[in-house]
């Protein structure tokens, strides 16, 4: 007990400041070099009541770079990281499998399909919000399809859900590829889609923050309120039912939450691999599987990881940005392999 409380405390003691510093560095570093004093003054002038901090001598352009360009981008990275990690933790618990990932039940491929459709149909060019809304709608609709396919007489076995999810995901991915290949001659659109599918946060604004934040917050709060049910579902559905869990309705809620979180994340960041898989997995190894610990810690870990990855994507090879999904896979992949090897050694030892 003392040991686990200590680990818990240590985790937050390291991760919370790390997230804060990462956000600050993400706002501080970029193609335009700005003195730290300017950056801090712009941030504080906005955050503190008017008149406390003077913005004299700071050009409007500098203020826009800090407040309208870099900060929303860093915040979107944090929100997406938190959302994907939460969705991953929920799915891993629900499927009783540490290798489950957020988009497993069709939500990931559905979000991509919705976005591709928006690009191809030209809707994405109309307003900045069309693309994310299409992606969220795609993820929820494909989840509904998977859920309806897997449900018989009010009962949804998770094994059937998994199979239906894989089937619908492959189908939607194929249709997305078909749409891309049909439009490959229109290089402008095709390039946009391909870039989007590799994940990225360039030109994200406060609109994206406000679109994503309430959904991630909603998902986080609901998941946390049902953390005990998620723990019990991991003991098997019979056990969960025996201890008072309304198994079918709670399963439905968790799948919906995971799809919502995945949809909201993919909507503003494109496909970002490995965060939803690695963050909960790593946190579980450090702090144990209890959902009341795991869910918030995974969210924090995922947020920190993605802010750092986005920072890396921006600074490694300027002026070209690396795609965010490529960076997370390049960083997360080896991390994941290392975790697996460690686990394998523990088991065989």
């Amino acid at each position: 007990m003392a040991n686990s409380t200590l680990r818990w405390g240590l985790f937050y003691l390291v991760t919370l400041p790390l997230l804060g510093v990462s956000l600050l560095v993400a706002v501080g570093i970029g193609s335009t070099e700005l003195p730290w004093e300017t950056i801090l003054r712009v941030l504080l002038a906005r955050l503190l009541p008017e008149g406390w901090i003077s913005t004299e001598g700071i050009s409007n352009a500098d203020a826009v770079i800090v407040w309208m360009i870099r900060l929303p981008r860093a915040l979107v990275a944090a929100l997406v990281g938190a959302g994907l990690a939460l969705a991953g933790a929920i799915m891993q618990g629900l499927f009783r499998n540490p290798l489950a990932e957020p988009g497993l039940a069709g939500a990931g491929a559905g979000a991509v399909f919705g976005a591709v459709l928006a690009f191809v149909a030209g809707w994405s060019a109309t307003t900045v919000i069309t693309l994310p809304v299409c992606a969220i709608a795609g993820s929820l609709l494909s989840l509904l399809l998977v859920y309806a396919m897997a449900t018989r007489a009010g009962i949804t076995p998770v094994s059937t859900l998994l199979l239906a999810g894989i089937a619908v995901s492959s189908l939607l991915s194929a249709v997305s590829s078909l749409l891309i290949s049909l439009n490959i001659m229109n290089w402008q659109v095709a390039q946009e889609i391909v870039f989007w599918m590799m994940g990225g946060l360039e030109a994200r604004t406060w609109t994206h923050v406000w679109l994503c934040a309430p959904l991630v917050a909603l998902g986080a709060v609901f998941a946390l309120l049902h953390a005990r049910e998620l723990d019990l579902l991991q003991q098997g559905e019979d056990v969960a039912a025996a201890f008072g869990v309304d198994v079918e309705s709670d399963k439905r809620m968790f799948i919906f939450l995971a799809a919502l979180l995945t949809g909201a994340s993919v909507a503003v960041a494109g496909s970002v691999a490995f965060v939803g898989l690695v963050a909960p997995h790593a946190v579980r190894m450090l702090l144990g599987p209890s959902s009341r610990t795991l869910l918030p810690a995974s969210a924090l870990g995922g947020a920190t990881f993605l802010v750092l990855c986005d920072l890396l994507a921006r600074v490694v090879h300027p002026p070209t940005e690396l795609r965010l999904g490529v960076v997370t896979a390049l960083v997360g992949g080896p991390m994941f392999i290392w975790l697996l090897l460690r686990r394998y050694r523990e088991v065989s030892a």
Binding site: S4, G93, R96, N97, R228, L232, R284, G288
Partner: peptide, 29 residues
Amino acid sequence: ARLLSYVPQDTRMDFGFTVREIVAMGRHP
């Protein structure tokens, strides 16, 4: 669940919950 409890045959465990965490789950009802 407050009146009646059940111990299934399958005691498969995938995640490393501690004994105390498992027993505390019994308080859920």
